[in-house]
Design a protein around this nucleic acid. Structure first.
Length: 428
DNA sequence: ACATATGATTTCAA
DNA sequence: TTGAAATCATATGT
């Protein structure tokens, strides 16, 4: 810093004090009077050496004089132009890249995660409190998420403070540099454009730092998500009511436990779970039921009775309009897995090798019917008619081929037969 | 601690 | 795409 004026000064001295230097040198080349040249250089050296001896005032005065020279602006303009054409144009060519795709992605994600969005509520405490307060009914969910939200808002806070810090630092640095350049523009050819460009460079540098911040924030959010929101890791059982509803549907549609899309939606709504959860549930239920029917016997009976009672209530209350489940429950003896439609009896028999299923099913259905009858007879007088309706269906209706066939109940083995006999492969 | 129950995921076939 | 079957990973009951 200190040397700048001095350098300028010496320069100035050389130019001012020896205007004829250049011509002299031209002459010197031919005349070969190296002596004069030597003398010249010696002169300059002398002047440089003595610069430090000059008083500060004198130097300032000279500098001032130089600055006030009427040709100075013009000279600087020219110099600036030259500079522009050489150095700066090269640098300028590679800038002005379009907004980085990567950066856009990060921004979008942060926005989507609510990290960079508008501040809501306040700190983490507020968010957690809000979650806890809001989710009184959906206790499970909110309790589970409050921790997540707290962590998220923590990340958010860190992100914002860091961002602010960067911003501040960037501004500070920018103004500093700008001031510096402006200051220097009095002694150096610096165009406003160049300053602008410098500011741009600084901003770019800082924004690359910002991007790193964003990236690490994104990473943190992703980790948080995978830890907290991965449903598989944090499996929660459905609440009792939901299970009840699902089971009710399952057993009342045992003949065809494949809820339609609408049915699934309705069930999902009733159970406050998602449709895919309903699908999962039915998938699991079907396979597990089929795998070990004996184990589900009790449950089946229970729900059969329950739906029967419900239906009875419904029909008793209303006119004789059938409840939606009743007609279909005709198939409660019906099918599930079985392919054929017509001759169930034959089919079941013909499967000698694999007949376990048919036999099992037959037993199951029979017992189901039995208990149903039992339960219904217990429920009270009004159920009489219903009992009849329930009874007739399993036997009579086999229109849709059945995995569990009502026509095979010839031998009513006790439902307590147990899982042991279910799979042939277990015994082998 | 262990066994069982259960929701979710993966793999495969139709 | 859907469902069956196998499997995973956790929840829950003992």
């Amino acid at each position: 810093m200190d040397e700048q004026p001095r350098l300028m000064h010496s320069h100035g001295v050389g130019m001012a004090g020896h205007p004829g230097l250049a011509p002299h040198m031209q002459d010197g080349a031919t005349a070969a009077d190296g002596e004069a040249r030597k003398q010249d250089i010696g002169d300059i050296l002398q002047q440089i050496m003595t610069i430090t001896d000059q008083s500060l005032d004198e130097a300032q005065a000279r500098k001032h004089a130089l600055n006030c020279h009427r040709m100075k602006p013009a000279l600087f303009n020219v110099l600036c132009e030259i500079k522009e054409k050489t150095v700066l144009s090269i640098r300028g060519a590679q800038e002005e890249e379009p907004p980085d795709a990567q950066l856009m992605r990060l921004d979008n994600m942060l926005l989507a995660e609510g990290v960079s969005g508008p501040e809501k509520g306040g700190g983490s405490a507020a968010a957690a409190a809000a979650a806890a307060a809001a989710g009184g009914a959906g206790s499970d969910n909110s309790a589970e998420h409050s921790d997540y939200r707290a962590k998220l808002s923590q990340i958010r806070q860190i992100y914002h403070t860091e961002l602010e810090k960067y911003e501040q630092a960037c501004n500070e640095f920018t103004t500093h540099v700008m001031n510096l350049l402006r200051e220097q523009s009095r002694t150096r050819p610096i165009s406003p454009k160049e300053i602008e460009r410098m500011v741009g460079i600084i901003h770019r540098k800082f924004s690359s730092i910002q991007m790193q911040l964003k990236q690490s924030t994104c990473e943190a959010v992703m980790i948080l998500r995978s830890r907290f929101l991965d449903a598989r890791r944090k499996r929660r059982n459905f609440n009792k009511q939901a299970t009840e509803i699902l089971n009710e549907y399952f057993y009342s549609h045992l003949s065809n436990p494949y809820p339609s899309e609408e049915a699934k939606e309705e069930l999902a709504k009733k159970c406050s779970i998602t449709v895919s959860q309903v699908s999962n549930w039915f998938g699991n239920k079907r396979i597990r039921y089929k795998k070990n029917i004996g184990k589900f016997q009790e449950e089946a009976n229970m729900y059969a009775a329950k739906t029967a009672v419900n239906a009875a209530n419904a029909s008793a209350q209303g006119s004789q309009a059938n409840s939606p489940s009743t007609p279909n429950s005709a198939g409660s003896a019906g099918s599930f897995n079985m392919s054929n439609s017509g001759d169930l009896f034959m089919s079941v028999q013909s499967l000698n090798g694999d007949s376990y299923q048919g036999a099992q099913v037959g037993a199951n259905v029979q017992s189901q019917v039995d208990t149903l009858r039992h339960v219904i007879s217990q429920t009270g007088g009004y159920s009489d008619g219903l009992a009849a309706s329930q009874m007739y269906s399993p036997q009579g209706i086999n229109t849709n081929g059945g995995w569990q066939d009502a026509t095979t109940p010839s031998s009513v083995t006790s439902p307590t037969e147990g899982p042991g006999s279910v799979h042939s492969d277990t015994s082998n």
